[in-house]
Nucleic acid binder design. Structure first.
Length: 361
DNA sequence: AAGACGGGGGC
DNA sequence: GCCCCAGTCTT
């Protein structure tokens, strides 16, 4: 390995112009026909890049199409109701992306005459726009030679240049940005950056990379040394903690269901859910009392209808779902309310509670 | 620098 | 079950 070499020195040995040409030529030939590639509207590029954070292309495509259908322009999104934006994001995860995006879009509408900024400083000041997204917008929408280093780019370049820095470390991204800054061509930074990412997605994959089909195989030090399977270096994360809940699927005498809005900050912020009791606070025996204390309502005939295990990136929910009926009392919780089966459809629910919702029909 | 923040899919 | 994915924000 090249532990003691600086990335910069490695790049000096590297045929940058031929690499650029081979990569761009390949990208222009085989690139996928993706909805956000139909035009270079900076707003659409922006939306796509936010959705694509930590999310696969195949997952994003239907969300992107629906989202642009609903909010065709930056001003449409700026004027939208936040709950409507969250509903459009429902199931995509990392919901702060949606909130930050709309926040930033409002900023652009108000301060930049609804035109997405084309400078590094202005973009970086927007909520939810970090080093990657900033570079992606500048290069893809404005064709400016800025690095856009994501997981794909780190994987590809770690192999091409045999870089063994730990890509799980936050500082490592800068090493790859320095690499890309040196290699990115002034003439076509858009196709170059997209080519790096497309290559990472289609050829230079995490496991079993298709090196025999690779357009830059000739430039790849990992391939020439048979190291492609060992790069990039990435240390492992920690295991998730498990948290147990009881969830309540409750109907009142009018056939309406009790739901509540989650806090405005933290996990699944502002989304809606069926009431849940942490089993750290109560147990199945005392669930009725716990519920009455928190919501001011008495319930009857609780029956366990399901057990749900839902895995997040940093924790696991284990939910025992109980169905029952409200028999008396007045609702005391500010963020809870009763809604009809039909009205339920318009509220954004996390996937874990969409599983609970299935027990209604 | 490390943890919070979703969900789906590959093997 | 573990790993990965077109990352960013907070602490």
């Amino acid at each position: 390995m090249v532990k003691d070499q600086r990335a910069k020195n490695i790049i000096c040995d590297f045929d940058q112009e031929q690499f650029q040409h081979d990569l761009i030529d390949w990208f222009q030939t085989v690139q996928r026909d993706l909805p956000w590639r139909k035009d270079k509207d900076p707003y659409k590029v922006w939306v796509s890049e936010i959705m694509l954070q930590q999310t696969k292309v195949d997952t994003v495509i239907p969300y992107f199409n629906r989202f642009i259908d609903k909010f065709p322009t930056l001003d449409d999104l700026a004027a939208a109701d936040e709950q409507e934006v969250l509903k459009a994001w429902e199931g995509l995860g990392y919901y702060s992306r949606a909130r930050n995006l709309q926040n930033a879009v409002k900023e652009v509408a108000a301060e930049y005459n609804s035109k997405v900024p084309d400078t590094s400083e202005e973009l970086a000041s927007l909520k939810g726009v970090g080093p990657y997204t900033k570079g992606a917008i500048l290069s893809i929408a404005y064709n400016l030679p800025e690095p856009a280093v994501d997981g794909n780019v780190m994987r590809v370049m770690s192999r091409v240049l045999l870089i063994d820095d730990d890509i799980a470390k936050s500082k490592t991204r800068r090493i790859f940005e320095d690499c890309v800054k040196e290699v990115i061509p002034e003439t076509n930074p858009s196709d170059f950056n997209q080519g790096l990412m497309e290559l990472g997605a289609l050829v230079c994959t995490p496991t079993k990379p298709s090196c025999l089909l690779c357009p830059v195989q000739n430039h790849c030090r990992a391939f020439s040394e048979g190291m492609q399977q060992d790069l990039p270096i990435k240390t492992k994360g920690k295991k998730q903690k498990s948290v147990k809940y009881m969830a309540f699927l409750l109907v009142d005498t009018d056939g309406n269901y009790l739901i509540e809005q989650r806090p405005d900050k933290g996990l699944l912020a502002s989304l809606w859910q069926f009431p849940m009791a942490p089993l750290a606070e109560t147990d199945e025996e005392h669930a009725g009392n716990w519920f009455t204390q928190v919501y001011g309502l008495k319930i009857d005939s609780l029956v366990k209808v399901d057990t749900i295990k839902h895995v997040f990136s940093h924790l696991i929910w284990e939910i025992d779902v109980f169905a029952g009926a409200i028999v008396s009392g007045g609702l005391t919780s500010e963020r809870a309310k009763f809604v009809s089966r039909k009205e339920l459809e318009s509220y954004p629910f996390p996937v874990s509670h969409q599983k609970i919702l299935k027990h209604i029909d």
